[in-house]
Simulated scan of single mutants.
Amino acid sequence: MANRLALDRFLPYRLSVASNLVSDRIAQAYRALFGLTIPEWRLVAVAAEAGPIAPATLGERTRMDKVTVSRAATALVARGLLARAPHGQDRRSHLLALTDAGRALYARVAPEALKLERRLLASFSAEEVATLTAMLRRLEEAAVN
């Protein structure tokens, strides 16, 4: 029975469960406090870090598919949090950038996101958090290669 799969010890399953639980917890907070979905928050956060950005690049940075990025961007544009501008080098695309309202929202959400992260990691030492972060980055690299 050496080849028998036990989900509770299967790392991809454990990562998926942990990710879903954390995402669900965060989604509840963002929806209740700011009316944002997780994809919308990811777009706001990346746009805040990167400045004007093409939807395809947003998809690459967030690991979200084109449809999810498009829906989130459309919702954020409709709320006046993102603005579309022509992409100077690519006429088939456009750039998305935070509006003043989007930057103000980011300034309110970011501290709450950090507070929630601190709460989730409260039972870990600083050393354990650093180790976990390094291990996750190594897993990401292994998954890409």
Rank of each mutant, 00 (worst) to 15 (best):
M1Y: 10
A2G: 15
R4D: 13
L5H: 10
R9W: 09
F10Q: 05
F10D: 01
F10G: 01
F10V: 08
L11G: 02
L11W: 15
Y13K: 03
Y13I: 09
Y13T: 08
R14F: 03
L15A: 10
L15K: 11
V17G: 09
V17I: 14
V17H: 05
S19R: 07
S19F: 03
N20W: 08
N20H: 15
S23L: 02
R25C: 07
R25T: 05
A27H: 07
Q28M: 14
A29K: 09
Y30G: 03
A32Q: 14
F34G: 00
F34N: 05
T37M: 10
T37W: 02
I38V: 08
P39T: 00
R42L: 04
V44N: 06
V44T: 07
A45I: 03
A45K: 14
A45S: 14
V46E: 11
V46H: 04
V46G: 09
A47L: 13
A48M: 09
A50W: 06
A50N: 12
A50D: 12
G51E: 03
G51R: 06
G51Y: 00
G51S: 05
P52N: 04
P52V: 12
I53Y: 04
P55A: 04
L58G: 08
G59N: 04
R61I: 06
R61F: 01
T62I: 00
R63L: 15
D65W: 08
R71Q: 11
A72C: 07
A73C: 07
L76V: 12
V77F: 02
V77W: 00
A78P: 00
A78F: 12
R79Q: 15
R79G: 03
L82K: 00
L82G: 00
A83H: 07
R84D: 01
H87M: 07
G88D: 05
Q89F: 01
D90S: 09
D90L: 10
R91K: 08
R91N: 00
R92L: 01
H94Q: 06
L96E: 03
L96D: 01
A97N: 03
L98T: 04
L98C: 12
G102H: 03
A104S: 05
L105G: 03
L105H: 00
L105C: 04
Y106P: 03
Y106R: 10
A110F: 10
P111V: 10
P111L: 14
E112F: 09
A113E: 07
A113D: 02
A113Q: 08
A113V: 01
L114W: 07
L114F: 05
E117A: 12
E117Q: 11
R118S: 13
R119K: 12
L120D: 11
L120Y: 10
L121Y: 02
A122S: 13
S123E: 10
S123H: 15
F124E: 07
F124W: 09
S125H: 02
A126S: 04
V129K: 08
A130V: 12
L132F: 10
L132A: 15
T133A: 10
T133L: 09
M135T: 14
M135F: 14
L136M: 12
L136Y: 13
R138L: 15
L139I: 15
L139C: 11
E140V: 14
E141F: 14
E141N: 11
A142E: 14
A142L: 13
A142M: 14
V144N: 06
V144D: 14
